[in-house]
Nucleic acid binder design. Structure first.
Lengths: 232, 232
DNA sequence: CCTGTAACATGAAATATTTCACCTTTTAGG
DNA sequence: CCTAAAAGGTGAAATATTTCATGTTACAGG
């Protein structure tokens, strides 16, 4: 366990540790933390770069991050947006050595970079632990896949509704964060042009489904939006 | 090990067993097979039904299957198409108890239904084995995700090119199977109307990129199609 | 405080896609 | 062998979406 009063998050409060020590003994878990680096990322900073080596397992204590894929042409696609606490190294860990996606802080973030060999060591000695961690990571996949399905099946209306509901229910729910998702980012998430996002949001507002409070988008009519997300 | 001369695939030839016994001892693996049921599915048969209970881990010895998602409206979306030998229970295993997708045979298939508790037992005694199996299952996800990214980013041209290349390179490569993917199925995979598939395929043929041999689609110009898949 | 940049916004033209109507060919079943 | 159903195919009209042109607003740096 890292003993350092400078750290915002003391290891004793760490939710990964709390989760882990339900399964493995503290004496197994704590040594892993000695090689672990805790970092702060400001809003907008890149945490992992697409194409870079995946050397660490990431645990997001607090904050919001986006997984995005950049094309040669320069356009971006946001695969998913996740809020901590959550294991976010999964996609890069379980796939290959190279990061398939970039990871960018959308809010200030506290992240622990766990040494992957230490983690594998712990995992190999404790099979139940692997299964638990995989379950964690799969959660993320499941949401992504449902977003993808909405993408494949729906028109822009429905896709934007899906994305708004996802952000509301799973990322910014009960949060006092400003809803700092730009129209451009919403467009990259819903896979359409930013003009289309702007028009659609305006229409949703005129129809009383959502409301703008400064930067924040407030969902007024969850039910109708769910309808749109399913049918349109 | 199942001793039954009726079986098309004897356990000694099983590629899951060959793969597994690289990691775990035969004496660990073989007892699992005693509860395992080997089944044949004819082209078009449903192997797993969306919404049903996920009670088994599936290993596809031979054949081609599609993972598809059905909407209330009746329209289908094909998430991926894969060929054996491959562990195909992953998506349903690692997510929840309920099948998120239906699994349908697109060619005659040989499948083993492995008891999930037996598998978990084996996995828990052999952590390395879990990691190896997950790596297997992740392969499938990675391909799906790249298909999704193509879906999100490209116009129909590019999406159809992506789907054709995927089928050619990863499903029907070097195979003497008839390329029995109907226009309707291609449309469900590329997420567009079947008319659009028909038109696009005709255009690709006129441009000399592909050729029809009876039911089979033959890719003539892999390079240009790759270009289209990336840029269009 | 000024200024440039990025984000937000709107409408019209251009393009892409779906839907529909219709036809032909292939396939499966009686 | 006949027939109905399914799959393949085409083109035009309707619709959805993007692109472009333009302008406004918000915000950070000098």
């Amino acid at each position: 366990m890292i003993e350092n009063s400078q750290l915002l998050y003391q290891c004793k409060d760490c939710s990964l540790r709390q989760l882990s020590t339900l399964i493995v003994h503290e004496d197994e878990f704590d040594p892993m933390c000695r090689n672990t680096v805790q970092l702060h990322f400001s809003k907008g900073e890149t945490i992992l770069k697409q194409g870079g080596r995946a050397t660490n397992l990431l645990f997001l204590h607090r904050g919001v991050v986006k997984f995005s894929y950049r094309y040669d042409t320069g356009s971006n696609y946001i695969m998913t947006i996740i809020t901590g606490p959550k294991l976010v190294g999964g996609a890069n860990l379980f796939f290959r050595d190279i990061n398939i996606f970039s990871l960018t802080a959308m809010e200030d973030c506290e992240v622990c970079m766990v040494d992957i060999e230490d983690f594998k060591g712990l995992a190999l000695r404790n099979p139940t632990y692997v299964l638990a961690m995989i379950e964690q990571a799969m959660d993320m996949f499941q949401h992504s896949i449902f977003n993808f399905i909405s993408l494949a099946h729906n028109h822009v209306n429905g896709r934007i509704a899906t994305v708004l509901l996802y952000l509301w229910d799973h990322v910014y729910k009960d949060s006092e964060y400003k809803f700092t998702v730009s129209r451009k980012e919403l467009a990259e998430f819903a896979a359409c042009s930013h003009e289309n996002v702007i028009n659609t949001l305006s229409r949703f507002r005129r129809e009383g489904l959502i409301e703008f409070e400064g930067k924040k988008i407030v969902i007024l009519n969850h039910e109708t939006l769910t309808e749109i997300s399913k049918k349109g």
